[in-house]
């Protein structure tokens, strides 16, 4: 649910990074944070455990520039991927405008990917959203690891709807901005259509 302010001429949108534990959601935000100009970003807030697992969420506000005199701001959130934090994941999806599903390409994480995707579908439904309609992109992360499943295989299992998808290596930034731009674009296009 975007927030449009005619008075300050701003438009704010919320994007959520979803996916199984340790798939690289927080790493995506850290990379974006490290690579953007100080003027365009706010603080990266991470509510995490002592072992750097996301406990509630990470949050990064970003400005992407102006469209017809409106400043466009994106609020990026990650959810905690660990299965038992489901209540928190639900809360973070409230008011979401676009979702990035970060998949872990490693063969032993296939089941976790599938479970997390199903969990996303159910939690979105609880909030009144339909995964088949919401602006949505998929990222196949950890392409650098030797035990990575082929992209085709991942696509078959995780992206039957054929939404935009990107191979990625989040720590070095491969695919990170492609993913972000793609979902941001889908969100703005949806706004243009008068959705939300």
């Amino acid at each position: 649910m975007s927030f449009i302010n005619y008075s300050s001429r701003e438009i704010n949108c919320k994007i959520v990074y979803y996916g199984p534990g340790l798939c690289g959601k927080t790493t995506n935000l850290q990379y974006i944070y490290n690579k953007t100009n100080p003027e365009t970003k706010g603080k990266l807030i991470s509510l995490s455990t002592e072992t750097d697992r996301t406990l509630f969420f990470d949050f990064l506000p970003l400005s992407l520039g102006e469209i017809r005199g409106f400043k466009t701001r994106f609020h990026l959130y990650t959810v905690p991927g660990q299965v038992f934090y489901d209540a928190s994941r639900k809360l973070i999806l409230k008011g979401v405008d676009g979702v990035v599903f970060v998949a872990d390409s490693q063969v032993e994480r296939m089941e976790a990917n599938i479970e997390s995707m199903e969990n996303l579908r159910v939690n979105l439904q609880d909030q009144g959203y339909d995964l088949n309609k919401i602006p949505f992109v998929v990222q196949y992360n950890k392409r650098d690891l030797p035990n990575a499943v082929s992209e085709d295989e991942l696509r078959k299992v995780l992206n039957p709807r054929k939404v935009p998808d990107y191979p990625a290596v989040a720590p070095t930034g491969v695919g990170v901005f492609d993913t972000l731009k793609s979902v941001a674009k889908l969100v703005l296009t949806e706004l243009k259509k008068g959705g939300a």
């Binding site: 520039g65 017809r68 674009k185 243009k192 259509k193």
Partner: peptide, 17 residues
């Protein structure tokens, strides 16, 4: 009170990126 963004074009969105 339709979408205030109905008048933006695909080109506007592309320009942003």
């Amino acid at each position: 009170a339709g979408s205030p963004f109905a008048e933006i074009s695909d080109a506007d969105i592309d320009n942003l990126f």
